[in-house]
Nucleic acid binder design. Structure first.
Lengths: 155, 155
DNA sequence: CGCTTTGGTTAGGGACATTGACTATTGTGG
DNA sequence: CCACAATAGTCAATGTCCCTAACCAAAGCG
């Protein structure tokens, strides 16, 4: 927050790494969202989509979705309600825990995942071509490393 | 969006680069926001703070803030209203254009920038120590490069 | 000068996310 | 085997954010 220009650290490196991280992130998000819309998945919102993307292929608990998306269970629940009404996911009772429910991907959701997947491939291929394979791989490695000290959710 | 597991590209690299970018970004944002709160700047919200961080030391036009923050002028205007009421910024008539107004940082805002600046330095120092100077610099360079094809706002 | 563009504001509504209080199931220690 | 704490999720009310639409005024341009 705040791109201060004073104090410590050589200026070259202060040019907001936070923003530098955010910009390409948003680029992928925007582009995938647009790809989905163009493919006919235009009945959901970005916020709903963000929750959907966290649903594991094996089904997820509401609590986990909420944690990962950094929101309250209540908020996540509303999103899931909507996604369910739209046919992207379904809630099933969790056989291993009577309190819990498993949110699983439905037919329409599966088709959306396919489209998004393809869009992501395209983006990554472009980046790879632009950065060169070497730097592209390095970026991956460094970010993975960084994740270890910045990801609040184990992984 | 959507972390698909099928199709193209070797799996190693598909582990969502988007998320990998987002996680450290959010880490910096969260931590700076907390640092500000702890320092007594606890009367604003994250959304207001996000707009504030875009205000240039020389003053910014509303339109520019809105563009950079990817929101409408109307939304940005509300944020600025609030920031102004809280004493972080002030609107001045723009001498070079009778229609426009310059949003400039006020005393309280300047103090906040200082705190945020210090927090950012800390974070970057930690990352540098963890990644090693070499990789830290590389990360910067690669992200800068990536920005050229992903930043919708020139710079 | 008219006309278009550009910078901002006002008004109203919808989407998102939070806090607080509640139910029900699970697990645990006495 | 039962009181008790912790956990999964819901309901209700509220507030914040952000958008569309409509508008005003200054600037730029033919």
């Amino acid at each position: 927050m705040v791109d201060g220009t004073e104090s410590g650290m050589d200026d070259e490196q202060r040019i907001d790494l936070g923003v530098s991280l955010f910009i390409p992130y948003r680029y992928t998000e925007d582009r995938m969202f647009r790809a989905l819309r163009d493919a006919g998945f235009d009945d959901w919102t970005l916020a709903q989509c963000r929750v959907f993307q966290r649903v594991s292929p094996d089904g997820s608990r509401l609590k986990d979705l909420a944690d990962q998306a950094q929101m309250t269970k209540q908020s996540a629940s509303v999103m899931v309600d909507q996604l369910e009404r739209l046919g992207y996911v379904r809630r099933l009772p969790d056989p291993s825990d009577g309190r819990a429910r498993l949110i699983v991907i439905e037919e329409r959701g599966r088709r959306a995942v396919e489209v998004a997947s393809k869009a992501l491939d395209e983006i990554l291929a472009e980046w790879k071509a632009y950065l060169g394979t070497r730097n592209f791989t390095l970026l991956h490695q460094i970010l993975d490393q960084l994740r270890e000290i910045t990801d609040p959710y184990a992984r």
